[in-house]
Nucleic acid binder design. Structure first.
Length: 212
DNA sequence: CCAGACGTTGTT
DNA sequence: GTCTGG
DNA sequence: CCAGACGTTGTT
DNA sequence: GTCTGG
């Protein structure tokens, strides 16, 4: 699955890669955990924009501050789940990342691996977004879509995020083609073990992605 | 009908 | 908003 | 995702 | 064991 990732490219590089007018400022992150504020790419009036959203989806119909805030949504059941169906139909996004973490082992002795793109600076995870209107505030949030592992990933973990290729960015945002919701090619990603310092989300520095 | 839930993951 | 359980 | 907390009472 | 916080 996908429960921790990195994004350390400069905002200008991000907006250039994703074809947006500009990007909000954000600090380089090497250990983004759920509930963090993160940049995502979405459509606004046929143009792409980058906005900062909470990781953990809060549906627009939630009454109070929702108890369940899914950080992932299964690609296989997106159309079935009332929780995701509307967002899948109307509110898709791309989640920029430079890489993500996945763990092996039991609680107390987890070994993290870092997975990164082979020929690109960025991953673009397929995501969904929502805007929740409270009495005093609005919360924009997102979730990352997961699928089964490709051959590279399956050595580590049975699932992985859906990764959209750059030539499919517009197609995903505009139409959300089902055909894009599958594991990426095994040669698009590579993985290596890193220090267990990555386990604690309080640690957030470039050394976390050094090979262990 | 109304009330209450709505998720994914890993682990045994 | 939409489905499930009672 | 992992790490860390998980409670009530009375008193200042 | 299960929930919350980061």
């Amino acid at each position: 699955m996908c429960g921790r990732y990195t994004l350390h490219s400069k905002p200008g590089v991000l907006s250039k890669h994703f074809g947006t007018v500009a990007s909000p400022e954000f600090k380089p992150r090497y250990n983004i955990a759920p509930s963090s504020l993160c940049p995502v790419v979405r459509l606004k009036n046929d143009a792409k924009e980058i906005i900062i959203c909470h990781w953990g989806l809060i549906p627009h119909w939630a009454k109070d501050d929702a108890k369940i805030k899914p950080i992932n949504a299964k690609a296989e059941t997106l159309s079935d789940r009332p929780y995701f169906r509307q967002a899948y139909k109307n509110r898709r996004c791309l989640v920029p990342a430079n890489g993500f973490y996945e763990w092996q082992g039991k609680r107390g002795s987890k070994t993290p691996f870092y997975i990164h793109p082979v020929r690109s600076e960025f991953f673009a995870f397929a995501g969904l977004w929502e805007s929740w209107q409270g009495p005093d505030n609005t919360i924009e949030s997102f979730t990352i879509i997961t699928t089964s592992a490709n051959k590279t990933m399956s050595a580590i973990h049975p699932r992985m995020p859906v990764i959209i290729s750059s030539q499919d960015y517009d197609s995903w945002l505009e139409k959300g083609a089902d055909g894009l919701l599958k594991p990426c090619g095994e040669d698009k990603i590579a993985a290596y073990p890193v220090s267990a310092r990555a386990n604690n989300p309080a640690n957030d520095s470039a050394e976390l992605i050094q090979m262990a």
